[in-house]
Design a protein around this nucleic acid. Sequence first.
DNA 1: CTCGTGATTGACT
DNA 2: GTCAATCACGAGC
Length: 164
Amino acid sequence: MIVEVEAYRGSGDPASHAFRGRTKRNEVMFGPAGHAYVYFTMGVHNCLNVTTEGDGMPGAVLIRAIEPTEGLDLMRRNRGLDETRRLAAGPGNLTKALGIGRELNGEDLVRSRILFLERGENIRGIGVSTRVGVGAGKSFRWRFFARDNPFVSKGKPSVRSQNP
DNA sequence: CTCGTGATTGACT
DNA sequence: GTCAATCACGAGC
């Protein structure tokens, strides 16, 4: 169950990979909505996004944390960690737990049998904050998370914010 | 618990 | 050459 996400857009969002236009890395952000955008960062981690907008309008939602509900053993093995609360708390941890790599970049999440989303219960009590790891000047309050859910990551939002 | 720091690849300027 | 949509770990409180 997804418990923490952040939104990114190309136009008017300096923190977005797509802010300065189309590149080899970010091209799936410019494609149709509902595809996986997987990128590698900090020399170590992959991060999973779901594209939005589409039709030449770049956009994506970064999946930052999930509450594991099944496949716990596999996730523990992938992470080399026992503690359930931290298995998939944080975008890098999440992709490692689920075994998601850049080979899934561009995957059609509507049609794929490998990677897809299912509808679950609506989450009650959604918190809003600035995005994690984004410079203060670029920080819209576009992080959304399940309040009081222990599986949300411990990343610190930046202090200042401005919503367009 | 919080804070500071190093790791390590590759995309972009 | 710069630096990033991060994480783990160790020191200190």
